[in-house]
Nucleic acid binder design. Structure first.
Lengths: 97, 97
DNA sequence: TTGACAGGCAAGTGGTAGCTTGCATATAAT
DNA sequence: ATTATATGCAAGCTACCACTTGCCTGTCAA
């Protein structure tokens, strides 16, 4: 996949991004617990792991291995392409002058 | 569908938004021609029509009937939610002060 | 009125994303 | 060494999206 747009297409993945916005550097198990508790989601650990893979291959999260833990960090830079693409007034339109 | 995120998940639909950014108010047939010519896409008219339906139900385009023509206009407002959600530094983080 | 043009509706099909199940690996604790 | 914890890998299943095909409606020109 590795595509930013498809990565944020799934509601679960957007919720994961929200969670990391609120508390960065969570492990897979932490995310599992929070998605279950706070967001009433009923997913297996593997399902969430696969979502994290998608997010990582899209560049929306980075991971760091800490012994047996894997910490996940949010990266919002890839989302900028959306602004660059459609939300900038002057883009080939010569808006200034 | 009616979801902004799923609407921009498909590459073809993003190309349609690009086309409308470049030239707003196109008809279905105009879009078909341009997607075929400029973007080397090989899709039937119905396929593109369905994509336009998705974009409209997501609020990314609006349409106006002009006799037997249907004109399509770009609406970028729904994309702002992405900025509000993840690209704003101070959102519950009390960044100022 | 007849034909061409622009668009709409709906059923059918193939491919793939998302999820589960089962097993495997690695690190830490006892 | 054994067990618990945290994660990884891979095959299989299901549901749905994207696309096509076929036919229908509405508008304009001759």
């Amino acid at each position: 996949m590795s595509d930013v747009f498809e990565a944020i297409a799934a509601p679960v993945r957007r919720t994961i991004l929200d969670e990391l916005t609120e508390r960065d550097g969570q492990t897979l198990f932490e995310l599992c617990a929070r998605l279950t508790m706070k967001h009433q989601l009923c997913l297996t650990r593997q399902a969430i792991s696969q979502h994290l893979d998608v997010l990582e291959s899209a560049g929306l999260i980075t991971t760091i291995r800490k012994s047996r833990y894997k910490l996940h960090y949010l990266q919002v830079e890839p989302l900028q392409v959306i602004i660059e693409r459609w939300l900038r007034p002057g883009k080939g339109k010569r808006s200034h002058k």
